[in-house]
Structures are given as structure tokens and as C-alpha cells.
Design a protein around this nucleic acid. Structure first.
Lengths: 337, 337
DNA sequence: TTGAAAGCGTTACCAA
DNA sequence: TTGGTAACGCTTTCAA
């Protein structure tokens, strides 16, 4: 196994000092002639920079940490993949970690990721209130996705205009004539940027609707549990005629439950999802979704993080606007007088 | 911003040499008393090891590189997420990169990943024939998923028992009475471990079926193109009565095409997918899939890679067996005499 | 059991 | 423009 050539080897080859070679290779300085000779020698030797040594010396690793709440959620899974791809396109490697739904794991991972000296951090936080975010945000650029980090005003964020999203959904359902709907939300308490209960209450009042709040455990390995849970909420003499699901995982759960109950979607039950995932069109031909444009989220997040890393630009909160995706027949409220 | 404590700081605090502290913290040596004092001082100071410095000095980064062909493919996307989670559980960070379908990008990424000095590499190769794998496999443990690396016998692999999978599918379709089916395969030439054409031909002969080969471009940003392409293959006076899709992305494409053509699945068209993704049950109630057990794949891959890294165990090829997942009504071949 | 010292391969400061 | 030289923070060999 031939030892990899080092900067010193290149320096020896051209008869210059390592420092000179380092500068020349980075195009920081050096006469045209020097630069050319150095580059030739480098390619001739097959020299490749050692990023580890570079990171130790410079303090920057050209790596971005990506910490996400749970890749079991399909939207987050795709988001993570897209972030990694976008970062790579900008010459950054991604160090990914998944808290798998546990806030305490999130905290532990954070410490470990920080130790890897990433140049920046992308995070879809499980617990946006955790105090450690502030420490971190002071040490390196942090961009949160989905929720602002309450205790870390210096961090950037990409959040969703939930008020607008909820309004779209309620207008849509009201327009179809629904009077009683189920709002399927996560058990986790809602956060400042996802004020689910508050918005539900407000919109219900505005549209004159009755809303059943259905708190649902996160998608686990066992979809059957979720299905049963949801099926129970959709049964009964006064059952809701529509379901508004704050996660597409929930929407899928509702579709499964509906099938189990023999309810036709959207004939007997209108279902609205809150994230537009790739195969939503297949999963339910009658599924209406709110699309937040994952591409826009990724662009905004990566854009501002790299601007902060490279050009020291300030981080800010960027808000993403929703649009409603209505597929096929939409299903009016079943009239049951 | 208070400077982070270094090994030297801990050493000063306990009045020992840095070397001693380093050993003590790793539990490599030191008297019980020393170890205890060192640990106390370390926690008191909030000392955290600097993995970069550690990697430079030791040559091992406790990081595993994960290179995948295309995270646009849902199965690979989930696989990547699962691998990262499993590696993290074993104390390894994941450096992920996505070749996004381009073999030349795969090659470039490989070089960049190698420079990061990962302790090992997981790869879902686009081009298993590429010569560079051999170089790499000599430098660090490599485990390929899906295809053996033809030129790198020293690399490990987790491959699928495709012969068994194809047999399951053909038996299933033959049992339903199908005589003419479409086999939807990627444009990319088939590889030693995915000898699609050969197996299709063999099974078709065995079951006395006529097979239309439908070469399909990979799932791109534009699903409509794929849908049209597939719809064309499913039309005509002598159209196939079943479709066998080598990727679930293709299966989804077929389901979309069927809907567009007004074909009922599985009434008018049986569809079989070749990867069991989470929501396959929703996407098509009549969709039959071959399940390769992603959990088993992840366990096998992570298990043998870490055994090679930590205990210098030899790498080998592990074969995963398929099982058929038949959902709801299966749909006999429409009789059209 | 402990410690001194020599790396590991860069980058960055400062002097030439 | 160039080159010494000192970090960067750890691991490891070798000697005490």
C-alpha cells in the first residue's frame, strides 16, 4: 500500500516550502509560474489534500452536521436526503444523525456532532425549547427547520406559515360543506411555530366548524396500532366527515383506517394531509395535501447556512408559504340529515 | 467564547502527562486511582475529546462513509436513513453522499469520501464494474449493497437472491393464470448480481409465458414522463395482463399509468413490485411485492462492516432471501378469449 | 505505571 | 512573492 503523497512530498518535488505549496494550491498567492509548477507536481504525484489535517489546522471541516428528529417520518427522510444532496453540490459533506424521536437522544447527539467540528448545523428540532441550542448557536451557524429555536435568537430558521396553511385547509373543507372534522395531531405538545391547537380553534371558530382533536403517537414500527387508534376516532354516530392530518404519516394512517372501516375516500370521508410527499397521489386518489415545497425549504436553509459560514452573513427566519394540492375528485361532505 | 479544554488542560489539572491522561480516559492503562482522578478532572472541566485531532493522530475517524446511487429511489432513501441510524447506535457517525444516478459522480464522490479517512464504506453501487473499487477495498473495509463489486473481491457484499425472487414472482403470476406479462426494468444494463434479462428469460420459459421487456428511465423529477412511457407499454390489442416491476418506483409508475388508462388493479392488471416500501399497501391495494427485509440488509451490512473494522474479520458476501407479500385480492388474469 | 517526545499533515503568522 | 516556524490536539513509541 503506497503511502499517500503529502504536501511535503509536493514541496520536495518542486523545491519549495510546504507553506508555499499550500498557498499555491489554494490559489491564495504565488507567482503564475509557481502555481503552475505546483499544480503539475501535485497532479503528477496524485496529491490529494488531507481534509482531517486541514480541519485540525484551520478549524473548519467543510462538513455540515444534519440532525433530524426522526427519519422514520417520510417527509423528514426526504428532507435529509435533499439537504445532503444540496450541501454536496456546494462542496460540503454531510454528517447526519437521527434522534429517532427521543429528545434526550437529540441532546446527546448534538454534543457528539459538535465535537466533530462541523462548519454549521442543520436541525429539524424535536425540542425547540432546549437550552443547549443557544450555546451551540454561539459557536457555529445553526439553521433550524420547522421550528425556531426559542432560546437561541442567534440561530436561523426556516419555518412554515402555518396560519396560512390552516386557513387553506379549513376554507377548503368548509367549501365542501363539512361541519365536523377531525384534526389529527401529534401527541407532542405544539410549539411556537406549530401552534396546532390554537390555530385549529381559531379556524374552527372562523368557519363555524366542530373539531375533534385526535392526538396520535408518532409513526412507529407498528402501523396497526396507529390504524386502530385512528379508526376509533372516525367511528360513531356523529363521526367527523373529514380528517385534517398534520403529518402525511397520519394521513396514511387515516387512509388505512378508512379502508378498514369501509369508508370511501373522498366519498364518505375527505382527507387532507399537511405535507406533500412524492406518492401522495397514489396513496389516496382523493387525498388533498398542503404542499410546502421541499425544494424551497432546502434552498432557503442551505442558502442561508452557507452564506453565514462563508460570508459571515447574519442568519434570519425565513417563512415558507403553502399551496393546496387538490387531486381528482374532492368529495363533498356526505349529507346525513 | 471560552476555549474548549484540551487534553493538556486535564493533564495540568491532575498533574500528569497528556499521554497518561489520554490512556486513562480510554481505559487503556493507568492505576485505578489515576483513572478515577483523571475522569473526575475531565468531567469537572467539561473536557470532550477532539475527534479531528484524534483522527489525525490515529488515522481512524470513527466515521463510516455511506455512498448511495440515488436517494431519489425511495428504497435507497430509506436504506440510507436506516444505515445511518444503525451505525449511530454503534457509535459511528455517517458521512453520506448521493451519486444521484450518475456513475461519474459516484467516482468523484468516492475520491472525496476517501479523503475524509472514514473507517469503512457502505455503498449501493451504480457501477459495480468500476476499477476503482479494488483500490479502495484494499485501503479500507468496503461493503457493497445490492451488487458485488466485480473487480474488488476483497470487498464484502449484501446481495439479494434474485433467482429466488424472480421465481416467487413468476410462480405467483403463473398461478393467477397470466400468459403475457410486462417486465419493467431500468435502462441501465443489468449486473452480475441483478441479471434481470437472463432471469426473466429463464423464468418465462419455465412458466411458459410471453414477456415484454420495458426498459424505463430512472425516476426523475418528472413522473409524468415515466407514466406515459409505461402507459404505452400497457396498451394495445395484445397488452400484458400483469406487470413485474424491478423497482417500486416503477411499480408506482405502473399504478399511475393504469389509472390513466382506466385499468383496474388488480382486476385488469396485476402489478408486482420488487421492493417492499412502507406505504406499498396504500399505494395499491392490489399491489403484490417482494419483500427483501430492509432490516436484515442493514443488520448484515453494518454487522460485517464493523466486525471488519473493529476485529479485522474478513468480509464476505451475504445473500438475502425474499418473501412474497400478497395484499388483498390478487387479481386473476382477465380472461379475454 | 508513568512520561517525554516525536509525529500526524495541514494552516497561519511573521519575517525575509 | 517566498519560506521558516509554530501551532492545531491528539496518539504512540520508547524509555524511565
Amino acid at each position: 500500500m503506497p503511502k499517500r503523497p503529502t504536501l511535503q512530498d509536493v514541496a520536495d518535488a518542486v523545491g519549495l516550502a510546504p507553506a508555499t505549496v499550500s498557498y499555491a494550491l489554494r490559489g491564495e498567492r504565488g507567482s503564475d509560474d509557481t502555481v503552475r509548477r505546483v499544480q503539475e507536481a501535485a497532479t503528477a504525484l496524485g496529491y490529494q489534500i488531507n481534509p482531517i489535517a486541514s480541519a485540525l489546522a484551520s478549524g473548519r471541516s467543510r462538513t455540515v452536521a444534519v440532525l433530524c428528529g426522526s427519519t422514520r417520518d417520510l417527509w423528514q427522510q426526504s428532507l435529509t436526503a435533499d439537504l445532503a444532496r444540496a450541501l454536496l453540490a456546494q462542496g460540503r459533506h454531510s454528517l447526519v444523525a437521527d434522534a429517532d424521536g427521543h429528545p434526550e437522544r437529540e441532546e446527546a447527539l448534538l454534543a457528539r456532532l459538535r465535537d466533530q467540528r462541523p462548519d454549521g448545523l442543520m436541525v429539524a428540532p424535536l425540542d425547540p425549547f432546549a437550552p443547549q441550542w443557544e450555546d451551540l448557536a454561539r459557536q457555529l451557524p445553526v439553521v433550524a427547520i420547522g421550528d425556531r429555536l426559542a432560546e437561541a435568537p442567534s440561530a436561523g430558521a426556516v419555518v412554515f406559515d402555518n396560519a396560512a396553511g390552516f386557513a387553506l385547509v379549513f376554507d377548503h373543507l368548509a367549501g365542501l360543506g363539512h361541519r365536523r372534522i377531525a384534526a389529527v395531531l401529534p401527541e407532542r405538545p405544539s410549539t411556537p411555530d406549530r401552534p396546532a391547537e390554537r390555530l385549529v380553534a381559531r379556524e374552527a371558530k372562523r368557519c363555524g366548524m366542530v373539531v375533534d382533536l385526535v392526538r396520535t403517537p408518532p409513526a412507529t414500527a407498528d402501523p396497526a396500532t396507529m390504524t386502530n387508534h385512528l379508526a376509533a376516532a372516525l367511528t360513531g354516530p356523529d363521526r367527523p366527515t373529514a380528517a385534517f392530518c398534520l403529518t402525511d404519516s397520519f394521513a396514511f394512517g387515516v387512509l388505512r383506517a378508512a379502508r378498514e372501516l369501509g369508508l370511501d375516500v373522498p366519498g364518505d370521508l375527505s382527507v387532507v394531509g399537511f405535507e406533500d410527499v412524492e406518492f401522495a397521489d397514489l396513496a389516496g386518489p382523493g387525498l388533498t395535501t398542503v404542499d410546502w415545497g421541499r425544494g424551497a425549504v432546502v434552498d432557503a436553509a442551505v442558502g442561508q447556512l452557507l452564506a453565514a459560514i462563508d460570508d459571515d452573513q447574519p442568519l434570519r427566519t425565513i417563512t415558507i408559504s403553502p399551496s393546496l394540492v387538490v387531486r381528482g375528485s374532492t368529495g363533498a361532505a356526505p349529507s346525513r340529515s
